[in-house]
Amino acid sequence: MSDTSIVLRIIPVSYLSGLGLRRPHRMIERHVMAYRRQWLIVVSGFFEPLFYLLSMRAGVGDLVGDVSVAGRSVPYDAFVAPALMASSAMNGAIFDSTGNVLHRLKYARIYDAALATPMGPADVAVGEISWALIRGQIYAIGFLAVMAAMGLTESWWSLMALPVCALIGLTFASIGFLGTTYMRGWSDMEIVNTLMMPLFLFSATFFPISSYGGWAWVVQLSPLYHGVALVRACNAGVWTASLVVHALVLLVISVVMLAWGSRRIDRLLRR
């Protein structure tokens, strides 16, 4: 744990303040202003995982029966629900940090305008990633409420899934933001969609990691896998030492991507 806190201390604070991290919340303020008129777009992102969940309960669950997780047997929908919750946090974060950031960066030139003020590149990067994280968190809260209503939460520990989803959102928002700084145009958004699908399907989302056999190590490369494992543990209220590793993986990815993304945006905007 101490290693991470050192990284956290060294990289973002001194590094990001060098890139002008002082008022990232202004970026969020701008988005709240813009989305007041388009709140429907925000809400719509919540439905996709919800429909998946309903289909799992209605059909697939009956066919599959119970699944064994950490030595316990749980109904299939209770197995899949936490994974879908983690996925919805990922979706919210990715969609905002890629397509919307690309639009603001290359076409609307929102950041160029902001950087003519005391705002700095790190304000833009941290502000955008925070906004994407917030959006992912909104979906996670909605999803958890639905899970509770459907009787899929097992204890109050399920609430712990919310901060975990914030971490997942942070991870994917940082990755999405960095990736977007390398995009040449809209056609590159296809790459995002192509990458998201296998991530969603093969992060031990729909079947336990044991079923991947010799390919389990590939699954472990997916950041979503670590997120899914954490949300599942929260929902079951089962705590193991391996959870610390999962959280560390996400944290380290976030920190590195965030610092790298800030550097990239500085290069792009302050030529």
Binding site: R26, R30, M33, Q38, R109, A116, T117
Partner: peptide, 29 residues
């Protein structure tokens, strides 16, 4: 930058905001 105003060659107005919102958010920056 806090003491200067910039009118760029190509307008970088915020097209997702109204005319007065453009001024408000800029002031907030």
């Amino acid at each position: 930058r806090a003491r200067i105003g910039v009118v760029p060659q190509l307008d970088t107005l915020d097209t997702e905001l109204s005319v007065q919102e453009n001024l408000w958010i800029y002031g907030r920056y």
